[in-house]
């Protein structure tokens, strides 16, 4: 019976196609990795798919330490930007989301629609006035300036996301706390936030990935080499006339390690969060 199920044509075709697509989708990463671990001349001559050759970490060492590429600084800057830009909007948006899900106030719908609209607006629409604003605040080409912008930008979608989650939490626990005499601040910090850890983890994972991946804001607001984040550093590697794919692939792999690790560690939350964020139910 079971064997018969396995041998149904639909099952066979589905397995073949799905695994073929999966491997095909993995292929560029494999190529990138193979290229990064060998001298570029060898890759050009033999192709990265040949397994024979000299494996080396020289490309990694060079992109990290050579002052011309200096990915180490980019790495550090990306962390300095991404960590606060994940935690700050998480807290601020959770507070706002709680207000949207529990309190009634005038302008509630207007403000909520505003947040939905902001979620759709492209980054390009904000950067020109922000450029001059940061300049006047002395925050241009400063990591703090980019942190402020990422944090504000993240508030909109996290508010929407957390509000959906809060709306699904049972109310009676909060009502019990109110009757027990707890203030709303106590309820929020002692009951709602601990209950929302899965959603907070999902939002944190997604926001971290997005901030880490950001290129456009960094490109506009950070320009000295010592302040650039990793995405900027990686694209400068290809600045030579002749592209050295060994260095470029090593840089690319370094740049994607942190988000891929976050994704691997929080995959369950990440995927559920992605689905919840889109479908409006956490």
């Amino acid at each position: 019976m079971r064997l018969k199920h396995v041998l149904r044509p639909a099952v066979i075709i589905s397995n073949l196609v799905a695994w073929l697509v999966a491997l095909l989708w993995l292929l560029p990463f494999v190529g990138l990795f193979m290229t990064s671990t060998r001298p570029f001349e060898e890759v050009v001559l033999q192709g990265w798919w040949s397994l024979a050759g000299n494996y080396t970490l020289a490309n990694y060492v060079e992109v990290l330490t050579d002052p011309q590429y200096d990915l180490a600084t980019g790495f550090k800057n990306s962390f300095i930007v991404a960590l606060p830009s994940t935690l700050a909007p998480l807290l601020i948006a959770a507070l706002a989301a709680y207000a949207f899900s529990r309190f009634s106030f005038t302008m509630r719908n207007l403000l909520f629609v505003t947040i939905l609209v902001i979620m759709a607006i492209p980054q390009q629409t904000m950067v020109i006035p922000l450029f001059f604003l940061l300049k006047s605040m002395g925050l241009l080409d400063q990591l703090l300036g980019v942190i402020l912008i990422h944090s504000s930008w993240g508030i909109a979608w996290i508010t929407f996301f957390m509000r959906n989650y809060f709306s699904m939490l049972p109310r009676d626990v909060e009502e019990a706390a109110r009757v027990d005499g707890a203030s709303y601040a106590t309820i929020f910090f002692r009951i709602i936030l601990p209950l929302s850890l899965p959603a907070l983890a999902a939002a944190a994972a997604i926001q971290f990935t997005w901030v880490w991946a950001d290129f456009f804001f960094a490109l506009i607001f950070l320009y000295s080499p010592e302040n650039m984040v990793i995405t900027q550093k990686v694209v400068t590697i290809k600045g030579q006339y002749q592209i050295d794919w060994g260095l470029l692939s090593a840089g690319s792999i370094l740049a994607m390690i942190p988000p891929v690790l976050v994704y691997a560690a929080l995959q369950k939350y990440y995927l559920r969060g992605m689905a919840g964020w889109v479908t409006g139910k956490g």
Binding site: P170, D172, V173, R178, V179
Partner: peptide
């Protein structure tokens, strides 16, 4: 008046214990 200021206690149908 706020529920917390009434000196009443309530038992809920689903008990509403703080799960954390």
């Amino acid at each position: 008046r706020e529920p917390g200021e009434r000196n009443v206690a309530m038992v809920f149908q689903n008990y509403a214990l703080y799960p954390n």
